[in-house]
Write a protein that binds this DNA or RNA. Sequence first.
DNA 1: TTACACAATGTTATATTATAACAATTAACA
DNA 2: TGTTAATTGTTATAATATAACATTGTGTAA
Lengths: 132, 132
Amino acid sequence: MLKQETLSKNQQIVLDYIEKVNEPIKAYSILHNVQKKGIKAPLQVYRALDKLVEIGKIHKIESRNAFVACKNSNCQISKATVFSICESCEEVSEISDSKLSKYLKNFQDKAGMKFNKYNLEFFGLCKKCSVK
Amino acid sequence: MLKQETLSKNQQIVLDYIEKVNEPIKAYSILHNVQKKGIKAPLQVYRALDKLVEIGKIHKIESRNAFVACKNSNCQISKATVFSICESCEEVSEISDSKLSKYLKNFQDKAGMKFNKYNLEFFGLCKKCSVK
DNA sequence: TTACACAATGTTATATTATAACAATTAACA
DNA sequence: TGTTAATTGTTATAATATAACATTGTGTAA
Ligand SMILES: [Zn+2]
Ligand SMILES: [Zn+2]
Ligand SMILES: [Zn+2]
Ligand SMILES: [Zn+2]
């Protein structure tokens, strides 16, 4: 079987919603908001989320247990993610910095581990919250 | 009041256990293992964990919801953490690489955010699991 | 076309992780 | 000593995530 190129019904419903809200959102919040589309149980959401993360359409913000759509068309594999998170307003942005990416991709630890993935989360204050 | 320099009873019990096991461990696993010391409820564990994270004695591995003792005497503030995680055996190590630290500390994103903290998790296969 | 394999779905129940709320106690300090 | 903040104890509950199993859909190949 060829690799799936179209999303299934539930996957599409969940992705549509995540792309619409355009900010990190939690699984149960997704559930509440797609119930009118026929998705009834947490598992249906989590399964869709798993798949969408796997194919890089969305990312999980680990420190927040939240999911956000990928806006970075070139990270379709979800293997190298960098986010900035405002600790005041919780605004999250995906950072796309080729120099940083290259640096991290090539990073070698002393124990000789073979890395195939990383996730970096920066925390601080966004511009708006800095001036408050 | 001066900044606390000694740990409270529950904080010390939890820290002792985390340092003893010397690998990432989950909150409820800690709970089960310190019940003989008189800690009875999840909240007692979580409160101790919060404090220990805050003062940098332990770190949270966000992608695993687990906690590990800090072995890196110079990151007493828990504001700049880097881990390698083996996706096969789940071994976790704290990476201390001054060049990487400096690079990340000085990283500036395009939106002008002021960062005061970061957490980086690398995923891959450790040496042992690579040869399997 | 039929049979197969696999992906996706539906559903119920349950496991795991974490916090709310409130009362009581202890420790630091002016 | 009186005041404040930190810590503890306790019960209940919220929030996040998965197990298990039956069913349906979909692409592939005999
Ligand atoms: Zn992305
Ligand atoms: Zn902000
Ligand atoms: Zn550390
Ligand atoms: Zn390993």
